[in-house]
Design a protein around this nucleic acid. Structure first.
Lengths: 248, 248
DNA sequence: GCAAAAGTGTTACCGGTACACCCATGC
DNA sequence: GCATGGGTGTACCGGTAACACTTTTGC
């Protein structure tokens, strides 16, 4: 560590998803560039987190590193979903200024590998490490100004997330270890931007042996306390059966 | 064209799938290196097709170019599925020798972007362009010796293909425009390495408005001639409905 | 007329969907 | 005792799974 040499033309960008029990959010970092002479604001927008990879580093490690730098968390769910190579993806005027200002020896053309990551946002503190990072609800992204081609990257990430959630129980990565069925339902509703019917939802979850009821219940809530559950990937792996059903 | 400059550390590799009405195959190229002094065979194995990308070229275009170079075909279904960055992925002894022999200015560490492509193999001629290219049934790959990390890339490609086939009607790309239901069934059986029940399969296909029966039938077959069908992506796009059903 | 593959219909079961009411807690 | 979200059962329907026989052609 310390004198790592970057590869100038390859980077990793992370789309970090989190769930606040109401909405699905993405962690964005504020980017601000102020003219040192005039004091005028040259750039003020938001970016995903990303960085170049090092010469002796694999993409997955670079993504983990970036994630840890921003959130302080390790062993987080990360999935590579697409590699972006548009020739002018970092060539907008404001982005060129930004790269010049950074002055880190990046290439003019940068190919970036997109990862999405799912974190239990109850575990992340945005006060210490924050480089002005904040959670933004996914439905606000379309109206925002993002750096580089990050809006495009976000769109692809959300699509990849939805596809993966359908076939693999990764949603649980967005919840605390112990969660209620209502939280799980709200989460899926947020991911797919839809509404689910409570009784049917619970019936379905009841058929998943890997969503296991704990003996504990919520405490201190001003209504009937909910049963707490746990997701066991171990049980999932043991009980899953191959499904071939074509869905198109 | 002509004086294109390659990017030394980024390449594209294509896993080309084809269907011969019996098995699902992959197009592999024979790689042979003979010691110019002794005449001894130094390397003899198989590789996927790939090449570096050019400085002014996008990944998708590089993949199309590579595909066209090998098969002569254009406008082929191509999908990027994963980017491979293991540090020693081209560093095995035989692979280093090969790269030295090629002497094209490639970097020591090459990151490669994997694409899979689906082609109607009745359209490809392996006689003209062939650099010793041949179709290899997918169930023979595990027992073969492949260059670089190409076996790993193939595994990921097959996985990505299966996932995508489940949610999008891309299988039809592997068939001629006009095909029979039995051919479609055999193809799906080959892709998923499974058996399907004829009557149920046909009932299901009967509910897909975008698989349209033609007026024509097979001719010259020594049995009852089969009805020919056509896949219409246009009809598919118009009639598809969003499904959210969780499958895990 | 025989071999070879195409084509078709019925029943049993399961999973999906739609829907309305009682329950436990904090204040 | 009231407001708040937690939790449950039933009826209908559509899709999936299992199964055997008749049809059309080339030779």
């Amino acid at each position: 560590m310390g004198k790592e040499v970057i590869i100038p033309n390859i980077s990793v960008d992370c789309v970090i998803f989190g769930f606040d029990f109401e909405k699905l959010n993405v962690l964005l970092v504020e980017r601000e560039l102020i003219d040192s002479k005039t004091g005028a604001v040259v750039i003020k927008d938001h970016t995903l987190t990303g960085y170049h990879i090092f010469e002796d580093e694999v993409l997955d490690s670079a993504a983990s590193r970036i994630l840890k730098d921003l959130t302080g968390l390790e062993n987080i769910y990360l999935e590579q979903f697409y590699t972006f190579s548009e020739i002018d993806r970092v060539a907008a005027e404001k982005d060129k200024k930004w790269l010049a200002y950074m002055n880190k020896g990046f290439a003019d053309r940068i190919i970036t590998v997109g990862y999405f990551s799912l974190i239990d946002s109850t575990k992340v503190e945005l006060t210490v490490h924050n480089r002005n990072a904040s959670w933004v609800p996914i439905d606000e992204i379309p109206g925002m100004e993002l750096a580089f081609d990050h809006k495009h990257i976000f769109d692809r990430a959300l699509e990849a997330l939805r596809n993966k959630v359908k076939i693999d129980p990764i949603v649980f990565e967005l919840l605390p270890e112990r969660f209620t069925l209502t939280q799980l339902q709200k989460l899926l509703e947020a991911v797919f931007d839809t509404q689910l019917e409570k009784r049917n939802f619970r019936k379905k979850v009841g058929q998943m042996p890997y969503v296991v009821a704990l003996k504990e219940k919520q405490v201190g809530v001003p209504h009937k306390p909910a049963q707490l559950y746990l997701f066991s990937r171990e049980v999932y792996e043991k009980t899953k059966k191959e499904r071939i059903g074509l869905m198109f």
